[in-house]
């Protein structure tokens, strides 16, 4: 991207300058603004390795990942090694992290269905809460930076390039999810910045491409999102928490999580309730009532599982 610090081709084999750990490169996984991520083998295990274009930015990321590691909950990939590697005579910083196997959030939703989105959002809100409690803001929230882990429906944040200290300006953002470009506030890192992005993301993931592309590219306004929300059966039940997040009325991720959960329960009860009301026949009603109980149990089970 910036030729005055272009990333050279990774060698097939790398060895850390300070800690001497060795890695054999399998393939490139992706490129971000701060560096290139490779899939590598270390002692027979698959590991993801991010080589930095800019040492300072990369080390900031490594720093945050290390701090979050101490937490029980799996928020981002575990970090194993921070070191330098010399490629074509130039020193580049890198860090090695757990290779999270799974599907990007937007792609995963296409497979499992949109009804999973609120549950994944609830998990994301828990992750964000931990990040916020550490004094940071994630910054660049978007589906591209989230992976739904293959083993179970766990969502994991993967690119920490946008992580910013609270009170600082957000280091990196994407226009689509940026509070300032929606004319809903500035770009100072506060928990509300992340919650705003999350709300836009939820609306976007539930909106078909045509509707979304009709939005103007400049001078966007949150009113346009309210119109989409009102018209969309997937997000309409979450109108209140979404609107509160878009208006910056939440102080913490936990508050938004509580409201989303509440809306989720309301929705389930309403759907089941309306079916019961329209079927007043004895057997049908009993059957539906039974189904309702089963579905609530399933719901409770999956929620419990997700929280753990």
């Amino acid at each position: 991207m910036f030729s005055n610090q272009k990333m050279p081709e990774a060698p097939l084999y790398m060895e850390g300058k300070w800690h001497g750990k060795d890695y054999s490169v399998i393939k490139e996984l992706g490129r971000g603004a701060n560096g290139v991520v490779y899939l590598v083998f270390h002692k027979g295990t698959k590991v993801a390795l991010k080589v930095g274009l800019d040492s300072i930015d990369l080390l900031m990321e490594a720093n945050v990942l290390t701090q979050l590691q101490s937490h029980n909950e799996k928020i981002g990939p575990a970090i194993y090694d921070v070191d330098d590697v010399v490629i074509e005579g130039k020193t580049h910083a890198y860090y090695a992290m757990e290779y999270v196997e799974g599907e990007r959030l937007d792609r995963s939703l296409k497979q499992v269905g949109k009804e999973w989105l609120p549950l994944l959002l609830i998990q994301l809100l828990s992750h964000l809460h931990v990040i916020h409690q550490h004094g940071y803001v994630f910054g660049d929230l978007k589906p591209e930076n989230m992976i739904v882990v293959k083993s179970g429906k766990q969502v994991c944040l993967i690119d920490f390039g946008g992580v910013s200290k609270q009170g600082h300006a957000v280091r990196q953002f994407t226009e689509e999810y940026d509070r300032a470009l929606w004319q809903a506030g500035d770009r100072r890192a506060d928990p509300g910045y992340d919650l705003f992005s999350l709300a836009v993301m939820m609306v976007r993931l539930c909106t078909d491409k045509e509707t979304w592309n009709r939005l103007p590219s400049v001078r966007r306004h949150v009113q346009m999102l309210y119109a989409i929300i009102a018209d969309n059966e997937h997000v309409a039940p979450y109108r209140i928490p979404l609107q509160k997040a878009l208006e910056g009325r939440y102080q913490t991720a936990i508050q938004m999580k509580a409201d989303i959960l509440h809306a989720f329960h309301q929705k389930s009860v309403n759907v089941a309730g309306s079916s019961v009301a329209s079927n007043k026949e004895g057997l049908g009603s009993k059957l539906l009532g039974g189904l309702f109980v089963v579905s609530m149990l399933l719901l409770a089970g999956s929620l419990y599982y997700l929280w753990m």
Partner: peptide
């Protein structure tokens, strides 16, 4: 060392 530089990175950012 990278560990020391992580501290410097924080300072540069600040």
């Amino acid at each position: 060392s990278p560990e020391k530089r992580m501290q410097v990175a924080g300072m540069v950012d600040e």
